[in-house]
Computed example of a mutant assay.
Amino acid sequence: MSEFDNVTVTREANVYFDGKVTSRKVTFADGSYKTLGIMMPGDYTFGTEKAELMEIMAGKLSYCLKGDSQWHDIQAGESFNVPAESSFDIKIIELVDYCCTYLD
């Protein structure tokens, strides 16, 4: 899906890591939400409250989930899941455009 219909977009950006990662919240009529963002090359660690589906629209990265010692390489058109109450390390190889869906 390249478009979302009937949504509210929060105007203010979420800004992390000195501006190297940004996102905007998109809220759907049913109250569910996603974030759309950009990550610049670098190494980052993110914590999660809810389970997440990270869809990569453009770019290349490697990620490692908390408790896992294996790094996984992915690129545009691929995705990965992150469990709730967890964290993941991410190495952005080239600028990443992403969509994060928060799962119940």
Rank of each mutant, 00 (worst) to 15 (best):
residue 33 Y to A: 03
residue 34 K to H: 11
residue 9 V to I: 10
residue 30 D to E: 05
residue 17 F to T: 02
residue 2 S to D: 12
residue 33 Y to H: 12
residue 29 A to W: 09
residue 26 V to Q: 06
residue 16 Y to C: 01
residue 12 E to N: 07
residue 6 N to H: 15
residue 33 Y to K: 05
residue 13 A to I: 10
residue 22 T to G: 03
residue 14 N to T: 04
residue 20 K to G: 03
residue 30 D to N: 08
residue 27 T to C: 01
residue 20 K to L: 15
residue 19 G to N: 13
residue 11 R to K: 15
residue 6 N to W: 12
residue 25 K to Q: 13
residue 16 Y to I: 00
residue 9 V to G: 01
residue 4 F to G: 01
residue 8 T to Y: 08
residue 21 V to E: 09
residue 33 Y to C: 06
residue 12 E to V: 03
residue 31 G to D: 02
residue 10 T to Q: 12
residue 21 V to F: 08
residue 14 N to A: 05
residue 31 G to A: 01
residue 19 G to M: 08
residue 7 V to Y: 06
residue 7 V to Q: 04
residue 24 R to I: 09
residue 26 V to P: 10
residue 20 K to H: 15
residue 2 S to Y: 13
residue 10 T to W: 03
residue 16 Y to N: 02
residue 5 D to C: 04
residue 10 T to S: 06
residue 23 S to M: 07
residue 18 D to Q: 15
residue 10 T to G: 01
residue 8 T to S: 10
residue 13 A to T: 13
residue 17 F to I: 03
residue 16 Y to W: 14
residue 7 V to T: 02
residue 16 Y to Q: 02
residue 28 F to R: 14
residue 18 D to E: 15
residue 30 D to V: 02
residue 34 K to D: 11
residue 25 K to E: 15
residue 13 A to V: 14
residue 6 N to I: 05
residue 29 A to F: 07
residue 21 V to G: 04
residue 2 S to T: 10
residue 10 T to E: 14
residue 14 N to K: 11
residue 30 D to T: 04
residue 20 K to T: 14
residue 19 G to L: 03
residue 22 T to L: 11
residue 18 D to G: 09
residue 9 V to Q: 01
residue 16 Y to M: 02
residue 14 N to M: 07
residue 31 G to Y: 00
residue 7 V to C: 05
residue 33 Y to Q: 07
residue 15 V to P: 04
residue 22 T to Q: 11
residue 8 T to W: 04
residue 32 S to W: 01
residue 2 S to H: 13
residue 14 N to Q: 11
residue 29 A to T: 13
residue 12 E to S: 01
residue 32 S to L: 07
residue 28 F to T: 10
residue 26 V to M: 07
residue 34 K to S: 08
residue 8 T to G: 03
residue 32 S to F: 00
residue 7 V to A: 02
residue 12 E to R: 01
residue 9 V to N: 01
residue 19 G to C: 10
residue 11 R to Y: 12
residue 29 A to C: 05
residue 19 G to Y: 13
residue 9 V to R: 00
residue 31 G to Q: 03
residue 8 T to D: 09
residue 33 Y to V: 05
residue 30 D to W: 00
residue 15 V to T: 15
residue 9 V to P: 03
residue 14 N to R: 09
residue 18 D to A: 04
residue 24 R to E: 08
residue 12 E to Q: 10
residue 8 T to L: 03
residue 28 F to M: 15
residue 26 V to D: 09
residue 14 N to H: 08
residue 9 V to M: 05
residue 7 V to L: 06
residue 23 S to F: 03
residue 33 Y to M: 07
residue 28 F to A: 10
